[in-house]
Structure formats: structure tokens, C-alpha cells
Write a protein that binds this DNA or RNA. Structure first.
Lengths: 221, 221
DNA sequence: TAGATTGTTAATCGATTAACAATC
DNA sequence: TAGATTGTTAATCGATTAACAATC
């Protein structure tokens, strides 16, 4: 956890919907992942201990996280996968669909476009871009590869909230600059490059090797 | 951070090398990522504030994390990129090369095999596997695609420490079971499937959509 | 020197979890 | 009923950060 929690003292609305701390939001997201998978596997009910087995998050903490928002479980039984999913979605405000633009139609871009990892969580890829003229007009999964011109128009028209960058390191910063200009506020960076943006823009850089270093440390220690 | 810290009270060795807490290990890994990139960009010196700008980790915390292990910086100047990299590598015991086996030679597997994200951090892909007979014998980047037979022999001979799974969801659990049997203790799972393993085995499941949900929450709130 | 940045302290705050009553 | 699991309390512990002296 990198930063601290900010509480919004509410002027006593009907529900005490404080802003979540980074830790809680992160954990709720992970519960959602387990629940989504569990649903796919046809599981109807899940206990806090079972979620703990998958996430390595302490079962007491799971119950505590959830009980802050209501009594979602049944003692002696566990949580309904269906209804807990709905509850967490509500807490995270992620009930509705969100639109994504994908930049880069190489191997990684194609892998992302053809997988359902994003779709499973309500993220819809609505546009795929590449700078290689040879690729423009071809198809990646169901998507037509386009040229990344008039970004702000496209971002507006297609109601794009998130840009996913699967481009070479060298191209990442320049593209990010253009995206910021076009009004994008969430960038998901799969390139290895570090990206600098105004503070209003969130950049999430995926770094598997860093995660691996981290895992390895605990393996060695 | 999901679990708590464990301190190994040392019988007074020369250096008080406690076991790192999850939080510290995670943050040190991220500093390493920034330093690796900074080095590529030809930067010689970096301040805690600059690292903070990239990682969104508070600069005081960065200095505090580092000062637990020595005085690595120069007041008024910052940290030497080169020497700080070496120091963190030492702290994380990640100085030496580690061998990785990659499973799955589809779009994602190919993207991983041809990128340098792992190589940048001392992880060497030494074997690529696929279950599709049509792919066996073909090349993915510099690697020959092999059949995943005799896993324990290969794991031993090639000194493989980590298995990276870029396979379909349906295949993940069965493959993980075979890997555990073959003696693998760190599995990096890029499939969307949840994997269950004995507790001695570390599974890291990459879940971009979950990260996105999390980022989106703070965007919406 | 003047400016910048580290290293460290001290105080606060949130995260974590063992334990257990409640109850399905 | 007996067994299982939730919801909650209470206590501890680590993370976080503002502030500032030290010093390059």
C-alpha cells in the first residue's frame, strides 16, 4: 500500500459510503476476481476461508472487509457467490460497462484483444489502434485495426475511459502525451517504459518481472 | 498487503539482515524497476522525490525504506542509479540469473518470449512449451517450442525456478498440478483461471482487469 | 555560501488477527 | 441438535508521513 486513506466525512446521507482505503479497494477487487471465477465454475456458495485459500488474504480480514458494508453472509453456510458479486460491484461502483481503447496490435495486443480477461469484468474493447500502416484495416479478433488519428474525437464518441498500451517502450511516452491531450485519465501501460503524466492521470504500469522478483524474495528467504 | 511481517531474530551476525516485510519487499522491487528504466535512459543520479513521481510512493517512505539498510544517498544530490540498483539487488538477493520455463506459445506466450521485460531483471527464459503438436519444433523468438514431457527432468537439468503459464484457462490447473509434481515452487499464472496448489508453492495470478477495477474506483470516487 | 536532498525522529493512524459469541 | 461459519470486539503491531537537523 503506497498511500494513506482519505475519509470523506459525509453530511449524514442515508448510507455511510466513505471513500475506500487503497487496501480495502484492492482487496475487494481481488474478491471479485475469485467470485467471477467461482461463478464460471458453477459454485453457488463460498466461505471466507475458501476465498482466503485462493487469495492468501486472511479469512478474518475478508469478513471484516465485507462486514463494513452489510451482512452479506449466512452463518454456518458462507456467502452466495451471486449476491456477493453484486454487492462488491455496487461498493466499487463497477456495475456498468466501461469502454477501453487498445493501442498496439502486435502479439501482446492481439493476446489482450482475443482474451476475455477484461470482458469478464465489464470492460469492453471498442477500438484497436496501431501505427504500422501494414496492419491498419486488418482484424484482430473482432476488431478492425485503426490509425490513431483524431484521438480526442474517438475518445469522446466512443466514450473511452481507459487506454491500454501494448506498444514498444520507445513509443509509450509520446503516445501517453497524446492520450492525455485527448482527455484520457486512466492509462494501463504494458510497455516496460516509465511514463510521466500530469497528476490527474492515473498510470498503471504492469511489471511482471517486478512481481516475480518479489515472489522470488520470499522463496529464497 | 495481505499478511504480516515475520522477523527473524538473528543471533547477532555481522549484518542485521532481517526478513523483509511484504510491504518493504514490494516497494524495493518497484524502486528497482524505476532504476532499471532510469539506467536505460542514461540517468546517473536520482532523488527520492523523482522515484516518488514515478511510483506514487511517498518520498519519505522511500528514504525510510532505504535507510534501514545503509546510507546509500548523498545529501543535496540524491542516489547513484548504478549503486542503488546494486544495493537493492543485494537486499533482495536477486543478483544472479534465474531460469524460467514458459508454457504456451500462443499470442501471449510469444509476446512474453520476445520481450525483454524478464531479461531486464535477470530472468532468462530457457524453455518454451506448448501442447499443440503443430507448434512443436517451431521457433518463438530464439526459442524452440517443445513438448511438455518429462517435466521433472527438464526442471532439474535446466535449473528452472519459475514457470510462467500463458495457457488457456481450461489447461491451467492440470498443468499446475504437473509442475508441482515436477518440483516447481513458483508459478506465474497469466491465465484467468484460479489455481490451487500446496501451500509450499507460490502462485501469482496476473489479473489486469482487477487492477483496472481498482484504478477505476479511484477515478470514479 | 546557498540550495537541495538525505537520514531520522516522533506521533498518528490504519491494518491485522486471535478469539468468541451469535446463529444459520 | 451438532457443526460450521459469520460478524465483531479488542488488542497489537506495522505503515505512514510531517517536520527538521545534518550535510553534500
Amino acid at each position: 500500500m503506497s498511500t494513506h486513506e482519505t475519509i470523506q466525512p459525509l453530511s449524514d446521507g442515508p448510507k455511510p459510503s466513505k471513500r475506500l482505503s487503497l487496501g480495502v479497494a484492492s482487496r475487494l477487487s481481488r474478491y471479485l476476481q475469485v467470485l467471477t471465477q467461482a461463478k464460471k465454475m458453477g459454485i453457488k456458495t463460498i466461505s471466507s476461508q475458501e476465498i482466503a485459500d485462493y487469495t492468501h488474504i486472511n479469512s478474518t480480514q475478508i469478513r471484516r472487509d465485507l462486514s463494513g458494508f452489510g451482512k452479506f453472509g449466512k452463518r454456518g453456510v458462507g456467502y452466495s457467490v451471486e449476491s456477493l458479486t453484486a454487492q462488491i460491484r455496487r461498493i466499487l461502483h463497477t456495475g456498468s460497462e466501461r469502454n477501453i481503447a487498445l493501442f498496439g496490435a502486435g502479439y501482446l495486443g492481439t493476446a489482450i484483444a482475443t482474451s476475455d480477461i477484461f470482458a469478464d469484468h465489464g470492460f469492453q474493447i471498442v477500438a484497436v489502434f496501431d501505427s504500422d500502416i501494414a496492419k491498419i484495416g486488418s482484424k484482430v479478433g473482432p476488431h478492425l485495426v485503426r490509425k490513431a488519428d483524431n484521438l480526442s474525437t474517438i475518445v469522446n464518441d466512443e466514450e473511452i475511459v481507459v487506454a491500454v498500451l501494448a506498444v514498444p517502450n520507445e513509443a509509450a511516452q509520446a503516445l501517453a502525451d497524446r492520450l492525455v491531450e485527448a482527455g484520457i485519465t486512466i492509462i494501463f501501460n504494458y510497455s516496460g517504459a516509465l511514463i510521466q503524466t500530469p497528476s490527474a492521470v492515473t498510470v498503471h504500469t504492469s511489471s511482471p518481472a517486478v512481481d516475480l522478483l518479489y515472489a522470488l524474495y520470499f522463496y529464497l528467504a
